[in-house]
């Protein structure tokens, strides 16, 4: 058994090996930590996805082409097209900062305004071979990750959707209506 195979402590070899041993441990530990740090930093730099607003995407189009980007916008219901393979829809600019959203009356209101404002910046998003998401509907908030193509279309490989005020509402609607 492995448990019983060690030699008794107190042998001269053990005692003399100790100071050198300590340095070995420290060096070994440092090498490991350096390797882990390198692993983390290099991968962080290569896989960062920048949060960009639709406004920025439109105005800085040239420098952003090809970069890994994450944008958020309000889905315009009429533009949703799906043929079983390709899903495309247009999103309109919404502010990113939570404070701005709050100032303009909450997320639902911001999304509603973005969709009804014809002057808001818009961008078309295309996804391939994705199922039609359950939550994709007019005035949903879409958060898409992907790259901007030369043609101005955003090619996404990930789509997250949020529908505000679906669950955990503050006050029952039917009660409000009745008052």
């Amino acid at each position: 058994m492995a448990e019983t195979s060690y030699q008794g402590a107190g042998q001269p070899v053990v005692a003399s090996a100790r100071p050198a041993g300590r340095a070995k441990f420290i060096i070994g530990g440092l090498i490991l930590l350096a390797a882990v740090a390198y692993l983390i930093v290099s991968n962080l730099l290569s896989s960062q996805q920048y949060f960009i607003t639709v406004d920025e995407l439109v105005s800085r189009k040239d420098e952003l082409v090809g970069r890994n980007i994450r944008i958020s916008g309000a889905v315009i219901g009429d533009t949703i097209e799906y043929d079983g393979q390709t899903l495309s829809f247009t999103i309109a600019h919404v502010p990113v900062s939570a404070a701005d959203i709050e100032d303009e009356g909450g997320l639902a209101e911001v999304l509603h305004q973005a969709v009804s404002d014809p002057n808001a910046s818009r961008v078309t998003v295309v996804l391939y071979n994705e199922p039609m998401p359950d939550l994709l509907q007019n005035e949903a908030q879409a958060i898409v990750t992907g790259t901007l193509g030369e043609d101005g279309v955003f090619y996404a490989d990930e789509l997250l959707l949020k529908c505000p005020t679906r669950y955990e509402e503050a006050v029952p609607e039917q009660v409000e209506a009745g008052s």
Binding site: N43, Q49, F51, T145
Partner: peptide
Amino acid sequence: VERSSVGPGY
């Protein structure tokens, strides 16, 4: 500095 996140690839 621009706000960013990392995906599952990281």
